[in-house]
Amino acid sequence: MEKPAGRFEGKIVMITGAGSGIGAGCASRFLSEGARVALIDREEEGLAQLTSAFPAEQVHAVAADCTDASAIAAFHRSATERFGPIDILVNNVGQSARERAGEFHRSDEDVWRFVLEVSLITAMRFSRLVAPKMRERGGRILNMSSDAAFAGDAGLVDYATAKMGIIGFTRSLARELAPFGVTVNAVAPGAIRTRAHDRVPAAVIDRIRQQTPAGFVGEPADVAAAICFLASDEARFITGQTLLIDGGRWMI
């Protein structure tokens, strides 16, 4: 299949949590379509792989913790000094703390705070960093929700709350930024083959596959394709929406 070539030539894209999984999938896709990308991830290794696979002048990668407000402000400053203002922000970073997940009545407030911080507040912080310039020159903000927002999985109260929070944030910010030519949308992936996914027990994956009409688990590239569509001129009339990419598991 021929991919749309050079669709993001001249565009500056900022992607959080870009070192692996969906974030890395988005980074590769934007890079292969001509964008220059500013990438942040806690882990250096994944970023190094992306940096070595593409020309150095296309990539600005910083290893830092996305929950550290001063570190992300410094990242935003260095990225815009090098490339110019951000055209497209992909708020991808997020974590379910599944290994620490448990029943709500025994849950730990520190875990809630961690999950809300990394999966919701980071999106708000990064958006606030890029919003002033986007109000002057337009732009695109893409937020990562999850089908967990709709699924009501037991033991994932904090994550579901954060991911439903992303949807409220998306809608409200979409209305606020619409007059300035900025669209704000979310995608809600279902089961996607990532590192986090690899830690889920095989029996759970089998059950999810059985519940998925498409009959297979998606790839990061499936989500990247949707993100790139929503970030493109093709989707300029779409704003405030949440697009499920889940092989038909929820259909809501």
Partner: peptide, 28 residues
Amino acid sequence: AAVLWLSSPESSYVTGVALAVDGGRTFH
């Protein structure tokens, strides 16, 4: 533009969705 995307292999893991292309009214 949205019809073509949903008709293309780019949306191969998307089925059963109702995608609003409405300039922001329904916020679905």
